[in-house]
Design a protein around this nucleic acid. Structure first.
Lengths: 149, 149
DNA sequence: CTTGAAAAATGTCCCGT
DNA sequence: ACGGGACATTTTTCAAG
């Protein structure tokens, strides 16, 4: 992966464009540009092309980050927790992290009532949880899916 | 926005597809499907179509969440902090949150050395910061950009 | 909404260098 | 690895029921 590939990826991370436009921006003709893109797709560097939606416009007014601490750090307990997490559509992200707590969850819901319900009926019901601490997003200063290359 | 629109959005959030495929999945013909998609784009419900990359394959081996606490909660201090944040390409997300700390940052870098450099030379240099606590992502159990509709 | 059609744009691939 | 050109697919628009 060279400088041109990185330029192509930066563009594709920003927005969908046709091969001609990309080619012009990286200073190549269409064919090599096309082949580079296909190669990046085949290698799995590009995982998918997706649509990003406006959170407010689809009625997800509440985003919260939940710090979850488990009772013990046994393999079984962790697996059980991770399995449960996968099933909840409210959870956008779940990361196993180092530090004071074990998991960091990003949750998106319609309103506070729905969040309350999620915590009480879904999250806190999972076995082996010792503690949950939530922080509500008041304003997203920056939010991108694009990595710097 | 009705049930069909939501179905269309769910598909487009999952992966790029041509109008014919979407039409088949939502049980409409191509023309109305095409018009619905254009409407959702025009209204800004669909913000953009982007490529998602494989983090490991582009060499971003380290992701960390940083909890930042400011010294005081003055408007000026907050604005200054937010301005500085915008300029750092390592920062993927920055949310102003309620709770024990003020800002939650998602940072993606190549390795620990780069992270160390980011904290010491970029983040901690910003005026008005009282505390930074970082948690490294060891495993991402779930990571999606798609909202449930 | 459906079907069908048709032009323009784009994607895809083969063959040169 | 690059560029040109040929062909297939898709996008986009339109008309009629």
């Amino acid at each position: 992966m060279d400088h041109t590939d990185r330029k192509i990826l930066m563009e594709l991370q920003r927005s969908r464009q046709n091969t001609k436009e990309i080619a012009a921006k990286v200073g190549l003709s269409v064919t090599p540009t096309y082949e580079r893109i296909k190669k990046l797709e085949k290698e799995g560097v590009i995982k998918a092309y997706v649509a990003l939606l406006d959170r407010e416009k689809i009625g997800k007014r509440v985003v919260a980050y939940c710090q979850v601490t488990l009772l013990q750090h046994q393999k079984e307990l962790i697996s059980k927790f991770e399995d449960a997490i996968t099933r909840f559509p409210e959870i956008m992200e779940c990361h196993h992290v180092s530090g004071n707590f074990d998991f960091l969850l990003k949750v998106a819901v319609g309103d506070i009532q729905e969040f309350h319900q999620f915590i009480n009926e879904k999250l806190s019901v999972i076995d082996g949880i010792s503690n949950i601490h939530s922080a509500f997003v008041m304003n997203s200063v920056k939010e991108r899916t694009a990595f710097e290359l």
